[in-house]
Design a protein around this nucleic acid. Structure first.
Lengths: 253, 253
DNA sequence: TCCCGAATTGAACGAACGCTCAAGCTCTTG
DNA sequence: CAAGAGCTTGAGCGTTCGTTCAATTCGGGA
């Protein structure tokens, strides 16, 4: 049927763009892997760039259910939700053998200076992300010092995530990711110390993995998927094959 | 002369790779802008990928004098050196109208999963960076709590930088950068509070620009260079033209 | 002065690129 | 069943890609 083809193209394109970049992905490769003829692709998308835009729109659309909503389901405590969100990216790095981090962030630097329309979609994605994190930080109420700049803190969290993903992918090791996140945790812990309020959300609840102390550092032979899985339910897609329906987009973003 | 041509190719390639990505840069464009024939390029570099590797090697080589050394010259206080280093990137974002962030970080995500040799060079670059920052944090001595994980903190600083650059470029605004860095500053301030020692390096020295309070947020009409310049001496290169000598590499990395 | 290797020239290569389109097929609807 | 819109087919368009190479020029030592 019709929309199935469109979704299959979109899904395959997203995967290949993420793996090889936009310029590094040939339209012919998308056609081959999606098992589609060129005419069909150009029936739905007027150009390769329009396909990129559609992929990014899909990411924006899927951010809420697949990530932000999932983080809220994974944790009730507003501050823990921040770390639950980071944990989702962590699991994604591990199960993919450091091939997949944040697909939008990965593409952003390549396209930022070349495709204005695409850049604005990345911008919208980032603003949704930080906006929701900021709302969690607001919900944390007086557990953060009264003068806390929640907007700056949410922006900072996104920076830490994107930089942590970058370093993890480059070094094919989760350690830089854990180290970076541990320092974000430390910042929130120290901030909480400045208030006189409950410290129930302190890091010794052990929710987020923190490296540092026990340095069992090791590298993964690039390409092989790691064994450890973060959040049991959210981890891997059923069987690899890009099925093209909306449900698959949820599970694999 | 011979090495002049080689350097000119290298310099132009670096600029175009940074602006358009690796796959987004045509060899023909490098030839045109460097005013060189294809035979000359392939006399020095066996392939386009080898040229990429050479560019990355140059970045690794130039990291010390152009960035790490410059930060040490800009500040004596070891902790201020961290922020002086970030300030260099900030200035680069501003003078380029958000076109140029960290060239190595920009390329890293595109090439991480495709060119193993190139990926290792990016890794080496990152390790030099964090290694030096870590040494500064060690030099800070008891101004940081005794249990401080200096390695993790240096890794965190690089994450903050890369993520901040990414967000600034995508939004064509310096605000996300300043917000991110302000939170890194806050982390170090709060850490210092945990010790009983001198607080001479506290943020109220006003060295690093901190947004947050006065929100004079604005965007730049993408492409135009901003007026504000960070560190007066380090700012812009003399006259745009890529001269190809080692001196130019220093000034523009 | 001659020589030889390094450096440069630039036309041309085959492959791959993004994309087009006339032609057929397949559903839905009246 | 007829009609027509929606979707698919796939050969092939012109262009650009990274790369090659025989021929030529250049510069420094013998």
């Amino acid at each position: 049927m019709a929309s199935d083809t469109r979704n299959r193209i979109l899904s395959v394109a997203a995967r290949l763009f993420e793996a090889n970049g936009f310029e590094g992905t040939a339209v012919a490769a998308i056609l081959r892997e999606a098992d589609v003829n060129s005419g069909s692709l150009y029936h739905f998308f007027p150009s390769k760039e329009a396909l990129l835009v559609a992929v990014l729109e899909k990411y924006v659309e899927v951010l809420e259910p697949a990530l932000l909503g999932a983080a809220e389901r994974a944790a009730d405590d507003p501050i823990e939700r921040v770390f639950a969100l980071l944990e989702l990216y962590r699991g994604r790095l591990l199960v993919s053998g450091f091939a997949r981090g944040c697909p939008v962030g990965d593409l952003s630097l390549e396209i930022a200076s070349r495709f204005p329309e695409a850049r604005h979609l990345v911008d919208a994605y980032f603003e949704s992300w930080t906006g929701r994190v900021e709302s969690w930080l607001v919900a944390a109420g007086d557990r953060l010092p009264s003068g806390t700049d929640r907007h700056a803190l949410a922006t900072h969290a996104l920076s830490v995530l994107q930089g942590a993903v970058m370093q993890a992918r480059v070094s094919t090791s989760i350690d830089p990711f854990d180290d970076s996140v541990s320092q974000l945790r430390l910042l929130l812990d120290l901030s909480a110390d400045e208030t006189g309020v409950s410290v129930a959300f302190r890091s010794d609840t052990g929710r987020t993995p923190v490296a540092g102390a026990a340095r069992t550092r090791q590298r993964v032979p690039s390409g092989a998927a790691a064994s450890a899985v973060a959040t049991p339910g959210t981890a891997a897609s059923p069987a690899g094959e890009a099925s093209g329906d909306d449900d698959a987009w949820w599970r694999a973003w």
